[in-house]
Write a protein that binds this DNA or RNA. Structure first.
Lengths: 115, 115
DNA sequence: CTGCATCCTCTGTGATACTG
DNA sequence: CAGTATCACAGAGGATGCAG
């Protein structure tokens, strides 16, 4: 496999697949970050998330959640009951991302006051 | 009106306008993060950035840089010479974001090996 | 070299109606 | 309650040519 650009450091010309870009791909969706944020606080049900994100439609919410699932950031627990109940929570991978979420929140609060 | 998600919640959840979303808005562009990354290493010229980002067109690069400029993340220094020379660098605000970039890179390297 | 203007494409997002 | 299925659309991204 090709050497990553950061192996052995120096020549900044050596770019392959930037890890920062990998992260970017995961959080690229319009609602991804905020969803992760809400799930970092506690497990949420589908409807709960929809209420938390006032302007999101069910279709979009479903898709964003599915993509986060595919990236193994979010776990989907289905309870076979009537009425249906589904709970979303962070996977270990998702939980490992929480510090970054917090960093982004802190950074925003500290530096973006005026916006 | 519907209860906001932060009404009556524990202190740790009290957010006015979710700051995480603010951050999201800034780094939303497809190339924003990687551009910031490259500028975090050192000041770069326009052409240099374009070479670093193999598949980006001039128009797009210009637009992404302008948006970062508008968000005061990037500083644009124009040298009135012939041929023209323009250098891009991080503003103090942009520099304050570097730790988060590094966090994202580290996180990716540690957890996303397989992807 | 840098970058703007234009046009075109395509993805993501949003709205709605229907289903188990 | 928790989706799925469609359709429509805005906007981001991309290619190209021209200009300072």
């Amino acid at each position: 496999m090709a050497r990553s650009w950061f192996d052995g450091e120096p020549p900044e010309e050596q770019i392959e697949i930037c890890p920062v870009t990998q992260t970017q791909n995961i959080i690229a969706g319009k609602w991804k970050i905020i969803i992760l944020w809400h799930l970092s606080i506690k497990t949420r049900r589908f409807n709960e998330l929809q209420r938390l994100l006032p302007n999101i439609s069910k279709g979009i919410l479903t898709r964003q959640l599915r993509e986060l699932e595919d990236d193994q950031m979010v776990h989907r627990e289905v309870y076979k009951e009537v009425p249906p109940k589904v709970e979303y929570s962070l996977t270990p991978l998702g939980q490992s991302f929480i510090p970054i979420l917090n960093s982004m929140g802190d950074w925003s609060k500290k530096h973006l006051k005026s916006k």
